[in-house]
């Protein structure tokens, strides 16, 4: 598509953010093409929120530079804010304002033309038209998240920054949410979304993985397994729960995950993994196949903590 040729929507280099003497984001680069859904992965405290805040001018980077929607992130954050929809990790609309009042407030803040109609339409689409006079604080997590998304879409932003938008939301609501993200993306809106969920990561066009403030992996989703270089054995047979328990914790096995009627056993070091698995392969009840790791395993691997990842890299 045209993604690769157009100028990137986000294009930053060497972003650094320190809180005290702790470097929370370290030399972060990213290049987000127009219309992409860019997944931003990383364990808790890895610096995702901090990075997103620097991109939309809420935090001043200690070093680094770049452009967001063509505006300089250091000097033109006013312009950036006009065209960005930012959904915060924690619900941050006014709980003591009603649903309508919140939407109306946001529409005024962004000087949305035809405010009244836009707000009515948003309420209609949300399915909250008949509850519009309820205070936002009374909504459940799923509804709050939908309201927050509606609020940051009112002004028709070109770039959406979504910080763990579906944390604590039920699977059905999450699916609806992602349908909406996909629709927006198709309409040309660029989306940078941080997430914790593997099933969400899979829906992204590109993935950036960050740990301890450093970006470790970045690329198109389909190339991620190859980049990570995870090796996997797939095993089928009876009584997988016991087998999983036996395998877990062996040297060379970093992850044992259940996929339907099979177990996927993965490790970074192919030799060590084989050594760990070989004793079990003698059991004729099971069928073992070696395969390249799929996206799922890789994401489970990435999300289950990055310490291993770091250690391997240092040792190599």
């Amino acid at each position: 598509m045209t993604q690769e040729t157009a100028t990137p929507v986000i294009e930053v280099e060497g972003l650094v953010k320190k809180f005290g003497d702790k470097t929370v984001v370290d030399q972060f680069d990213i290049n987000v093409p127009k219309g992409a859904i860019y997944g931003f992965l990383g364990p808790n405290g890895s610096g995702k929120t901090t990075t997103i805040r620097m991109l939309c001018g809420l935090l001043t980077p200690d070093a680094g530079s770049g452009r967001c929607l063509g505006y300089d992130i250091l000097r033109q954050s006013d312009n950036i804010k006009e065209h960005v929809g930012y959904m915060t990790q924690k619900f941050s609309l006014y709980e003591d304002l009603t649903i309508r009042e919140n939407l109306d407030f946001m529409a005024r803040m962004y000087r949305v033309p035809d405010r009244k109609q836009k707000v009515d339409k948003a309420l209609e689409e949300l399915g909250l038209a008949n509850r519009s006079h309820q205070q936002a604080g009374e909504l459940s997590g799923g509804w709050k998240q939908r309201l927050a998304l509606a609020a940051c879409l009112l002004h028709g932003p070109d770039l959406l920054l979504l910080d763990e938008p579906t944390a604590g939301v039920d699977p059905k609501a999450r699916r609806d949410f992602w349908d909406e993200i996909r629709r927006l993306s198709d309409a040309g809106v660029t989306v940078l979304v941080s997430t914790h969920y593997m099933d969400e990561a899979i829906q992204c066009d590109n993935i950036a993985y960050i740990a301890y403030g450093k970006k470790l992996i970045d690329g198109p989703a389909r190339k991620i397994p190859e980049m990570v270089g995870l090796n996997t054995w797939r095993v089928e047979g009876p009584d997988l729960a016991n087998l999983a328990a036996d395998l877990e914790g062996s040297d060379g096995i970093e992850q044992v995950a259940r996929f339907g009627s099979a177990l996927h056993i993965s490790g970074m070091d192919a030799k060590k993994l084989d050594n760990a698995v070989n004793p079990f392969r003698k059991d004729k009840r099971y069928t073992w196949t070696s395969k390249p790791a799929g996206l799922e395993e890789v994401f489970i691997h990435l999300m289950s903590g990055s310490t291993d990842n770091f250690a391997e890299k240092k040792a190599a």
Binding site: K81, Y86, T88, S92, L93, Y110
Partner: peptide, 14 residues
């Protein structure tokens, strides 16, 4: 304290 400052600051308000 309530976290609403983040929303307010993310808007272009001067």
């Amino acid at each position: 304290e309530r976290g609403t400052m983040e929303t307010l600051l993310a808007t272009p308000a001067r």
